[in-house]
Design a protein around this nucleic acid. Structure first.
Lengths: 214, 214
DNA sequence: AAGGGACTACCCATAAGTGGGTAGACGCAA
DNA sequence: TTGCGTCTACCCACTTATGGGTAGTCCCTT
């Protein structure tokens, strides 16, 4: 962007509080202009098409269309707009999904407002910005592995585990022996590097594993 | 409070973004003055003791000392300050805990800033304020049941269980024997009618039990 | 045809949890 | 004072889970 111009920023977040707050904070800076706000990705998309912001600050957790899914739509409609994701969570899932879909930045909501300003400036200049905590998570992901390639069967086990079933009940539900259910669970733990059942449950919930109702 | 005076508000939230945002928004109103902000309940308490705010807007989810637990401390140190809780969650657990401990208001973070202003005004005048969604939850609680009366100790156990700890580790963390930890867990299961550890984890997650980081 | 991943199944010894009790100490309220 | 609830702790027999293996059968790809 041309130096001296104001950075046009569009905000999308389903929390009016955050929306108004961010707007108020950003507008205390002369070189930044908030050209619009929206509470939903869908309305934000329409708005963005009209106002052509330089930078889009978008929340991830939104009803209906999630911020993650919205990235692709924005890249299609207004590819020149640089997208920075805002999130409460530092899960690798969210972060890598965002980066893969084309986000230019990812910052946690617990960062200082200064850091948000830095992020806006950086991506407006064509750079990428990831808040410190996020960077750690990305590195960690690179270092160890780049997926959680659970096999279908392992998902079944996890799903039943989530439903509160013990190995025995899992075995019955899947028509396998208890020993096999135990093996699957062992493999899950080894694969995910999680030692406890509680950890598995949390993993399942974090990764959208659904409770088996069968 | 005397009419014509500014309402002195103190903000406590561990998200600088929310803190700065709230401050910026509130300060656009002439009759409201933000007399301080804090990122932790502990520092907020010190600050409040000095500045004697009329209204305290405090987040619930905070590291170390949670907002819920902090209510009691504030009531002791500065009983004249009216407390309004801010939360992302509409769980009955949080809401009733807050009310019981003496909060004068409870608003969800997805409300409009107008509603936050109303809340501040209302509680400053000695009233109580609950955002619409919160009110529903309270009513629903009255109507259906009033049960999950977990004792503080049981919450501790659940919290550590959520962190993936076994009875042994829980016992160590709390300075009790493993046998006692088992007893607590047994009581939890009986009380909640949940048979499995997985179920307890889900219960904990559903009811806003925080992971113990101690 | 050979390798690899997925799914199945079993062995072993040890550790942990379950479900049924009982029971003392403390504090708070009727 | 007499309960009641909470927190603590222990007993016992039994079931599950853990963590280390190995290994056969498919199926798919190389």
């Amino acid at each position: 962007m041309t130096k001296g111009d104001k950075i046009k920023v569009l905000l999308i977040d389903n929390h009016p509080l955050v929306l108004d707050g961010l707007k108020a904070v950003l507008e205390t800076f002369d070189h930044i202009e908030v050209v619009g706000t929206a509470g939903l990705a869908e309305t934000g998309l329409e708005l963005a098409y009209k106002v052509r912001p330089h930078v889009l600050l978008m929340d991830i957790n939104m009803p209906k269309l999630s911020g993650i899914d919205a990235i692709e739509l924005f890249k299609k409609r207004i590819p020149e707009t640089r997208i920075v994701m805002l999130s409460m969570h530092d899960s690798r899932e969210y972060i890598s999904s965002s980066v893969i879909r084309g986000a230019a930045g990812y910052i946690l909501k617990d960062v200082s407002t200064d850091e948000i300003i830095s992020a806006v400036e950086t991506v407006a200049d064509g750079g990428k910005y990831f808040s410190s905590g996020v960077f750690d998570v990305l590195m960690e992901g690179e270092a160890s592995n780049d997926a959680d390639p659970l096999t279908p069967r392992e998902r079944d086990i996890l799903s039943l585990l989530l439903a509160g079933k013990a190995n025995k009940a899992i075995a019955e539900a899947l028509g396998i022996t208890q020993a096999t259910a135990e093996t699957h669970r062992k493999n899950l733990k080894k694969k995910l590097g999680i030692a406890t059942t509680a950890g598995l449950i949390r993993y399942a919930l974090d990764h959208g594993i659904q409770t088996k109702t069968t």
